[in-house]
């Protein structure tokens, strides 16, 4: 995630001194960030160009990438993971973000009672550890002890239940929806904040012009919160393509059944660290990490240059 800080420089001064203190103040954060983020990133990029040959680390250029995309097995698992990752992202965009917007819209209704309670309750899953979330949902969806078959049975719809997490065609959707449940609080909060920022005058003016209810939402509120939706989309994108933890806890490192929930994060984990009898392959792991980095980078760039620049912002 990139944070852009704009520093406006006071040009009213006659004599400009070198402001060393800015450097001094920036330095600690810069050092820490370099040590824990930038150097490992560079090292990863470097590692992706090396591989072990005859027991020695040797420069192989783009050889690892050739293997990843050229070898039918590597390519198959990579494209499978990338495809699943896109589905994972798509479900978040189509389910998590609209629900987040809807919840925020409901929360910002002035007459709502217990608003603070709902807000906290709906944000709570985001604060839970993914281990807890994964475990709870595995239990809820368990065909043996789960409450979901029991509840469906109570209303006579037991036939609708199936072991979703264990079937290749439903597992990915199920895991995505668990993730949506966990993180829906984030778009909700951001949109909620954006909606609170809309001045009452604008809404009152709209009401005077006869724009109320749904059309007020579509014509006034939505355009004003669009920048926030943009930010949420990019956060979702980065988050989803870096995702790993929930799938790992719910489906294990092999991301079964039959690799149907395997995303780039789990593929990277298995490749880099190894799994069970599979011994980790640091070079190929770094190669996958590099590809992930490039995918995320290009996505973020696309957003920054193609979308955010065209977005209209309103000043009040």
């Amino acid at each position: 995630m990139a944070t852009v800080a704009e520093v406006s420089i006071d040009r009213g001064e006659d004599k400009r001194q070198r402001r060393w203190h800015i450097l001094v103040f920036l330095l600690p954060a810069l050092l820490v960030y370099t040590a824990v983020m930038i150097l490992p990133l560079i090292e990863t990029l470097r590692l992706s160009l090396f591989n072990v040959k005859d027991g020695q680390s040797a420069f192989v250029g783009f050889g690892n990438f050739q293997v990843l995309f050229g070898d039918p097995r590597w390519a198959a698992s990579f494209w499978n993971a990338l495809g699943n990752n896109f589905i994972f992202f798509l479900i978040h965009m189509l389910v998590q973000n609209p629900i987040g917007v809807a919840l925020a819209a409901l929360l910002s209704v002035p007459k709502l009672r217990f608003g603070a309670f709902y807000r906290t309750a709906m944000f709570l899953p985001t604060l839970l550890s993914f281990v807890i979330v994964g475990f709870i949902w595995k239990l809820i969806l368990s065909p043996i002890w789960g409450v979901s078959p029991y509840l469906l049975d109570l209303v006579g719809l037991k036939s609708l239940f199936s072991p979703w997490l264990g079937k290749p065609d439903t597992a990915l959707i199920a895991v995505s929806l668990i993730s949506v449940w966990q993180y829906v609080g984030i778009p909700m909060m951001l949109i909620y904040a954006a909606m609170l920022n809309i001045p009452d005058e604008v809404l009152e003016a709209a009401e005077c012009d006869g724009v109320t209810g749904w059309s007020q939402f579509w014509k006034i509120k939505l355009p004003l919160i669009l920048p926030s939706i943009g930010i949420i989309s990019i956060l979702t994108f980065v988050g989803n393509f870096n995702a790993f933890d929930l799938i790992y806890t719910v489906q294990g490192a092999l991301a079964g059944p039959d690799g149907s929930t395997d995303i780039l994060g789990t593929l990277l984990y298995r490749t880099f660290f190894g799994f069970q009898l599979q011994i980790g392959d640091k070079s190929m792991g770094a190669t996958i990490a590099t590809v992930m980095f490039l995918i995320i980078l290009s996505g973020v760039c696309l957003y920054l240059f193609a979308i955010q620049r065209r977005m209209r912002r309103y000043q009040f």
């Binding site: 595995k138 368990s142 065909p143 239940f161 979703w164 264990g166």
Partner: peptide, 14 residues
């Protein structure tokens, strides 16, 4: 058992 596709190892033990 029913839904063995989503039955985990601890489930089986239990």
């Amino acid at each position: 058992g029913d839904g063995f596709e989503a039955q985990t190892y601890p489930d089986s033990q239990n």
